[in-house]
Amino acid sequence: MNFDATNRWVGCFTQPADAKQMKHHVIRITVNGDRHTLAVAPHWTLVEVLREHLRLTGTKHGCGTGDCGACTVLLDGRSVNSCLTLAVEVDGREITTIEGIASSGGELHPVQDAFIAHGATQCGFCTPGMVVSSVQLLATNSRPEEQEIRHALGGNLCRCTGYTKIVEAIAAAATQGEEAEG
């Protein structure tokens, strides 16, 4: 799969041969509250546009095939793999990246506080995707069971932590949110 018809190594990000000639499309997107108008090639992915064009490098590019979840962002409030989302698909839509999870005043989301306090980050490369997935989980299920947390993280790989402290952090953030409400 990494080779073309002539057995030449081409990697996984092959583009249409005439990509250069393809017309750019103008899209309007809101990212973390900021509005942007961008001209994008039809094959550009959302992660590419976020990282290379908007320089929002908190979103990580870990695999390009939607398996690792390091590129997870919220699209109109729902988590998606930004490496599997084409930029042209998100015209007119609202995106939240890891840079937009804390309040604009810099106050951390309870999930972020809990990740720090529970030692849920090691190398930190999966962390932005983990945090975004966790925020999405708690938005839809404010008091998840441990197994629900583990399943909600099914699209996010981590190689450092064994997930233990990540799961603990999310459970603690949920408890804290409940206490704040109660």
Partner: peptide, 23 residues
Amino acid sequence: KSLPRPDAKAKVTGGAQYTDDIH
């Protein structure tokens, strides 16, 4: 003492810079 990592805040906010993040 189970002190937290000094770099944890940068990592949970997307501010921690890895090589590919540098332009």
